[in-house]
Simulated scan of single mutants.
Amino acid sequence: MNSSEIKDRAAGAIMGAFIGDALALGPHWYYDLTELRRDYGDWIEDYTDPKPGRYHDGLKAGQLSQAGFILELLLRSLVENKGYDEQDFCRRMDEELFPLIDGTPISGPGNYTSQSIRDAWRKRIQQNFPWGQVSGHADTTEAIERTLAIAVRYAFQPDKLATAITHNTILTQDDDTVVSMTVAFGAVLGLLVQGNRLDMDISAKLMKLVKSGALPFHAVTNDDLQPPKKGDPDPPRVGRFASPDALLTPSYMAEAAFDPDIQIEPPWKVSIVYGMPCAIYHQLPAAYYLSALFHDDFELAVLHAVNGGGQNQARAILTGALTGAQVGMSGIPKRFLDGLDKADELMQLAEHLAADMETGN
């Protein structure tokens, strides 16, 4: 894969995430699908205004939520520093986000602040704790929604990818399982930017990186999940994270997507199969499934993520990034860029990040 194709995929991943965020702004967090269809019809196909009294009331179609705001904040930090600079990111959070929120759910950019960011604000602003002591126990995809930019930047440097995503995640979320699943998502996204497809082989490629020491996951089995042999040390490969299961999930989701005997129809009902709530263990399987099923169709992937209801914004951000990385910017319908607020500015940042990648080519 040549350099221009890689950059196209990198920019597609970033813009796919922003588009997914904005597409779900209006119909965000409808757990009653009858209510969702009543307010937005049988199929949501474009950007929509939030309804009065809903989570993002007051914003307009095509604008970003606070998740998109924080992703942009980290993206700017990566571009301006030509890599991950934790001190700079924390400074930006202190200066550009925290003065705009008040520790309550309905506040700040996007008119909603997630649990982990509220926890960090209270500890940082009200209790004056230093960064490194403000993380909480939220089990959401909040960190993935920003660190996907790190995954793109270090797509060809999995060791740096894992280290930077780990360090950034634990600023706001300290549950080790959440951290491992966040790093695993970044590793998957990195492989997709490189030119791989989200298919049944993706986990084997990830496990090779574990074996080489590039990804910090513990693995007690040998290749292809075969049992350890007598005399093998215990364990044969030791990493920061307790097991490699977060790296194995994507291939199982891809297998389900490609198996003709497994039918989820219509595909947006994957949200019911894996669960509508916010927790990372509901969100990742659905995003992996949709991105494998629609690996060459960005529009269908992200719209099925949105139309599934519940925490569809996180689902659409993750699905948008994974599918955008597979189809590239050239595969994202122009109408999604035309309707996205600040699209030119965001696209310029995405292209700068892509240009800064060290591909080794």
Score class of each variant (00 low, 15 high):
residue 7 K to T: 06
residue 7 K to Q: 15
residue 9 R to S: 10
residue 16 G to S: 09
residue 18 F to N: 00
residue 21 D to T: 01
residue 23 L to G: 02
residue 25 L to V: 05
residue 26 G to F: 00
residue 31 Y to K: 01
residue 31 Y to D: 02
residue 38 R to P: 02
residue 45 E to P: 04
residue 50 P to Q: 03
residue 50 P to W: 00
residue 64 L to R: 03
residue 67 A to K: 09
residue 68 G to Q: 03
residue 71 L to G: 08
residue 72 E to T: 11
residue 72 E to V: 03
residue 86 E to R: 13
residue 87 Q to I: 11
residue 88 D to G: 02
residue 88 D to C: 05
residue 89 F to G: 10
residue 90 C to R: 01
residue 91 R to Y: 05
residue 91 R to E: 13
residue 92 R to D: 09
residue 96 E to S: 14
residue 105 P to Y: 01
residue 113 T to S: 13
residue 121 W to G: 11
residue 128 N to C: 13
residue 128 N to K: 15
residue 129 F to W: 11
residue 131 W to Q: 09
residue 135 S to C: 14
residue 138 A to T: 13
residue 139 D to E: 14
residue 140 T to W: 04
residue 142 E to V: 12
residue 162 A to Y: 01
residue 173 Q to V: 11
residue 174 D to M: 14
residue 184 A to I: 06
residue 184 A to L: 12
residue 189 L to S: 08
residue 193 V to N: 08
residue 195 G to H: 03
residue 198 L to M: 06
residue 205 K to A: 10
residue 214 A to D: 14
residue 214 A to M: 09
residue 215 L to P: 08
residue 216 P to N: 07
residue 221 T to K: 05
residue 237 R to I: 15
residue 240 R to I: 15
residue 246 A to V: 10
residue 247 L to H: 03
residue 247 L to T: 07
residue 249 T to G: 12
residue 250 P to G: 12
residue 257 A to M: 08
residue 257 A to Y: 06
residue 258 F to A: 15
residue 259 D to R: 07
residue 270 V to P: 01
residue 272 I to M: 13
residue 276 M to K: 14
residue 283 Q to G: 13
residue 288 Y to W: 07
residue 288 Y to E: 02
residue 289 Y to W: 12
residue 292 A to K: 04
residue 293 L to A: 09
residue 294 F to T: 05
residue 300 L to E: 15
residue 307 N to G: 00
residue 314 A to W: 00
residue 316 A to I: 00
residue 317 I to T: 03
residue 318 L to A: 10
residue 324 G to I: 03
residue 332 I to R: 00
residue 343 A to M: 05
residue 354 A to S: 07
residue 359 T to A: 07
residue 361 N to R: 12
